[in-house]
Design a protein around this nucleic acid. Sequence first.
DNA 1: ACAAATTAAATTGTTTACAATTTAATTTTA
DNA 2: TAAAATTAAATTGTAAACAATTTAATTTGT
Lengths: 143, 143
Amino acid sequence: MEHDKDDALKLENQLCFPLYAAARKIVGAYTPYLKPLGLTYTQYILFLVLWERDGLLVSEICERLMLDSGTVTPLLKKLEAKGYLRRERSESDERCVRVVLTDEGRAMKERAGDIPAKMCSCMALSPEQAKQLYELLYMILKG
Amino acid sequence: MEHDKDDALKLENQLCFPLYAAARKIVGAYTPYLKPLGLTYTQYILFLVLWERDGLLVSEICERLMLDSGTVTPLLKKLEAKGYLRRERSESDERCVRVVLTDEGRAMKERAGDIPAKMCSCMALSPEQAKQLYELLYMILKG
DNA sequence: ACAAATTAAATTGTTTACAATTTAATTTTA
DNA sequence: TAAAATTAAATTGTAAACAATTTAATTTGT
């Protein structure tokens, strides 16, 4: 194999790998804060979406979280079983399901209010670096 | 809830989310190149490690990939079953397992040689931006 | 109007991840 | 040196992710 191809296959020359590993690390860093609330990371970001705007369709949740219904539907069912939300079939279009928070679901927001600040403080980046990273990541997501 | 806490809980103000979503997007972007080789992304990066240095211990693979044995052991068993590697218990310390590529495992490297270049070209970042991102991600991984 | 195409969720099946535990081997230490 | 502690892998159980398919409802095109 040519030298350049050989180099290109080294783990340290991949961009995908630190992205993949850093994502797992950050998601894992949420666990100590989420576990006391009985939430997983995916459930947490689902709550973020619903706290921001209640009554979204499943498809709108999927779009915002960039996840498909095969991932989101079981999550919603679990949170519904725990009493945090209700899934209501739309009357105008029976294909659609609207997701509505219960009082318990809204109350969870208060309990989670400190998490972003705690996570920020455990991240080894300055605010400028965080902003830079944020913008580069959204370039990937949009491009 | 105070305004600042409310804002901090918005999805668009999270750094974790674009990290998590971009990682999934990039991993997914490998699929069309890996599927013809019968590999998943995780299997691919495991190969990257072994192509770089053959005969590593399971623990060394786990360290390099930042994954635990619960993830890596089943991966290794699958690749062993496909004939790409052998798992050999160390004679000097029977707790350790050494992972050795077969001819088929080494041959896979030739078939994967073009993947890094193809992935690079489908990424919406300039080389400078990629370098910046790379460095920020490793700050997270090391910090 | 009505068959064909499209759409929204849900379902099925496979592959990660990871926490927690277990097993077996080795090292430490009392 | 024998018990205790540590270590390396493997195992078990749970929760994502996602491709591919299915089901049911709606929309389109003729």
